[in-house]
Amino acid sequence: MPGLFDPIRLGDLSLPTRVVMAPLTRNRAAPRQVPSELAITYYAQRANPATGASLIITEASQISQQGQGYLDTPGIYSDEQVAAWKKVTDAVHAKGGKIVIQLWHVGRISHNSLQPVGEVPVAPSAIPAKTKTYIATGFAPVSAPRALGIGEIPGIVQQYRQAARNALKAGFDGVEVHAANGYLIDQFLRNGTNHRTDAYGGSIENRTRFLNEVMQAVVAEVGAGRTGIRLSPVTPANDASDSNPQPLFNHVADELGKLGLMYVHVIEGATGGTRHIPFDYEALRTRAKAPWMVNNGYDIGLAQQALARGQADLVAFGRPFISNPDLALRLRTGAAFNVLDSKTFYGGGAKGYTDYPALA
């Protein structure tokens, strides 16, 4: 069976290893949600496949201003944002790396101050989330949302399509649709957040309709071989819940399996927390019929075990990549990791972002 440092064909991409950098929100975008000059350095530092990631998945990037839920997160909907991202992708490619952008709409996980002209956030149903977000004054409770009208939904699907088109214009090797962690697509999927009675609510088939429309639009725009998706079937992140997630996500995987995707990226257990929440991921993997990327608390031993057992094709590492731009080299050689400074996770400048040292 393959190991972490063996090559893999991933849709339209060929990767020399199976080490992936997971999306990591860092809240350092410039005004107008434009990726900063520091982002060029940050991603380039991690882009050499021999020492860092064979594939980088960017921080989540909103498809519209309405899709923004946190202060200073980048977008992929304006010409200025596209031009700034092009500098990032050029720098990654110069190091021999591959990079895809994660397409994001947060839905109800937002705040009036981040929305166009102070509007309220949108969601499948007008159910406030019991969580906080990050705004100009610090962490604050999210604002109560309004339910999307059925006539608004096609416009959001079109925004995903346009964002995917913009991603290729910006030089990305592909896109990852963010359908995890209690954000808009996940809110449509789960019956804890979707109480609709129209064609987008009620049955599993109806609750998965929005996801299917988004995926079909993105695949039609950039091709299945450049389209991935992220799922988190049982995470409680952002007040997400479903009364019976196994049949729901089995159906999701069945639909995804018809598309021939670049990969399916799954967060096992609770995002950033315990992995040990009962769920049959193997049922999803066999249905999805795509390279299978696993995520959540993986170290070298657990990663190699999952690959050897055929339970994964790639492994995404998150926080270790924050403090170790040369994470793959450290995993391969057993070198110690840099100490992670949690105070610099969100916002700020170079400190805790581009100043972590690589091995000599």
Rank of each mutant, 00 (worst) to 15 (best):
E255T: 14
T51F: 03
T17C: 02
H105R: 03
M293E: 07
A30F: 03
K343S: 15
A167N: 07
N191P: 04
A22S: 14
G301Y: 10
F172K: 12
G257W: 05
A164P: 10
L307I: 04
N191G: 02
Q305F: 09
D313K: 00
Q115N: 08
I101H: 01
G151F: 11
G67C: 11
Y281L: 10
A163P: 09
P145S: 08
S241T: 13
V19C: 05
I127V: 12
Q115F: 06
K130V: 15
I300P: 00
P154S: 09
P74W: 11
V122E: 03
G349Y: 11
G182C: 05
Y298S: 10
Q66P: 00
S61Q: 06
D198T: 03
L55P: 01
I204M: 07
A180V: 05
G225T: 08
P16D: 10
A170C: 05
R190I: 06
L248E: 05
E152N: 12
Q311E: 15
M215N: 09
R26L: 02
V294G: 00
N27G: 04
S232L: 07
I76Y: 01
L10P: 04
A358W: 00
L340I: 13
R287L: 11
D326A: 10
A144V: 13
V177A: 01
T41H: 03
A360F: 08
L15F: 10
D173P: 03
T51M: 01
V177F: 02
E213L: 14
Y183N: 02
A179G: 11
A335C: 11
D90V: 11
M215L: 15
K95R: 14
A288N: 01
S61M: 13
R190C: 08
P74H: 09
